[in-house]
């Protein structure tokens, strides 16, 4: 555990979460959500949870972003809020 690293990532996490939910373009919301997942992965590697970090890197930043992108492609890109 390195608390300086922890502090920076936690700050960026809040920013990524808020930006992802505020964006009215769903594709950019999805991409920022991918960034959020990758920051989570860094956070877990820092907290010595290497297996969890590996899973999050493969699942969160890879597969779940892809699922969201394909749904945005098949529905609509605009969001009212």
């Amino acid at each position: 555990m390195i608390w300086q690293f922890d502090l920076i990532i936690l700050g960026l996490l809040i920013v990524a979460a808020v930006l992802s939910l505020r964006s009215t373009d769903l594709l950019s919301a999805t991409m920022i959500f991918g960034v959020y997942s990758f920051l989570m992965c860094l956070l877990w590697a820092e907290m010595a949870a290497v297996d969890v970090a590996f899973t999050e890197a493969a699942v969160g930043a890879g597969a779940s972003t892809m699922f969201l992108v394909s749904t945005v492609y098949n529905t609509t890109r605009k969001s009212s809020d």
Partner: peptide
């Protein structure tokens, strides 16, 4: 090392997704 069935499975599935993309 870090890894196992869940991680390896997701990476294998992602390779097929890359092929489809």
């Amino acid at each position: 090392s870090p890894g196992g069935g869940f991680q390896g499975g997701v990476i294998f599935g992602a390779s097929l997704i890359l092929l489809a993309l």
